[in-house]
Amino acid sequence: MRLTLKIWRQAGPDVAGDFVTYQVDDVSGDMSFLEMLDVLNEQLNSEGKEPIAFDSDCREGICGMCGLMISGLAHGPEVTTTCQLHMRSFSDGDTITVEPWRADAFPIIRDLIVDRSAFDRIIQAGGFITVNTGAAPEAHSVPVPKANADRAFDSAKCIGCGACVAACPNASAMLFLGAKITHLGEVPQGQPERDSRVVKMVAQHDHEGFGGCTNIGECSAACPKEIPQDVISTLNKDLRTALRHGY
């Protein structure tokens, strides 16, 4: 198929960017979206033009490194990551716009690449269980009911890609945050720090410039790992409990 791409080009963080239109021929349905961009980049390189910068690493939907706004949808039209989106989801003659994630807390570095280090700082604020190497009790000393273990796992599937933020009109990171709060809150090992964790992580979230949640639900719809919106309810409940406990 033959496609028209309108791609955001921006040489650096502090310069203005703009859309540039490219034509790609001979796109096969078996290509992933990023392989299609690889082909375009080879084309640009041979024309002596600088290739388009975009992030990716595992290319199998698990590392969370990739992430593009594709015709207005975070990760494009399927429920998956950009790297796992394949060109058979598009048709001959389509025009596709490609943009980076847009959020104040994710500044653009170059072209389609943004800085998501705010997510790391949210984890630093409390997204862990305090245990030193060497201090762990025998694994079977605390059984975990299967239902809790399963919900913990379902929340821990988050890959930290940031699509939830990009999709949210408020640029809120509540889905990402709620996923971590729920993961650690569902296991017995996470209980001692449950109150302080949620308070510190929410404070960091706000400090980074992410917006508040107004229950629009775009985050869950865009999430490639289908993290459900109810993790945000868990987050709010935990926050209320913590405040009641005097945090």
């Binding site: 245990v131 762990a136 059984p143 975990v144 009911p145 273990a149 913990a152 650690l184 090992q189």
Partner: peptide, 16 residues
């Protein structure tokens, strides 16, 4: 032991 203490959600049986 350490991973469980960190909260790693390994698969579990019904008995926990």
């Amino acid at each position: 032991d350490l991973c469980v203490a960190q909260g790693v959600p390994f698969a579990r049986e019904y008995g926990g």
